[in-house]
């Protein structure tokens, strides 16, 4: 099934800057585990929760706090529709 949720694609684009080819699997896992949704059901209201959980997960992958904050900020900016 082709996912055409533009918000989900934006989230993927941001995450890909950090996780590259693993981005889609990472985002799908966060959405499924913490939001109990499928990717095409993702809305802007979910972004705050998604960003919070993504911060926790990303912090497990890198010690660079600035990088993690940058990533979370960019996700939150999507809720404000400020682009990636």
């Amino acid at each position: 099934m082709v996912n055409i949720n533009p918000l989900y694609e934006d989230v993927l684009a941001v995450t890909a800057d950090y996780l590259g080819p693993a981005a889609r699997r990472f985002v799908d896992r966060q959405i499924d585990s913490h939001l109990n949704k499928s990717p095409d059901e993702l809305t802007k209201k979910d972004l705050k929760t998604l960003a919070a959980w993504s911060r926790v997960s990303m912090a497990l992958l890198t010690n660079d706090k600035q990088l993690v904050s940058n990533y979370v900020s960019r996700l939150m900016n999507l809720a404000n529709n400020e682009g990636v």
């Binding site: 080819p21 981005a23 890198t62």
Partner: peptide
């Protein structure tokens, strides 16, 4: 060449 700062470090 691959995308992803964290992925590249790994």
């Amino acid at each position: 060449s691959v995308q992803g700062i964290v992925y590249r470090k790994a």
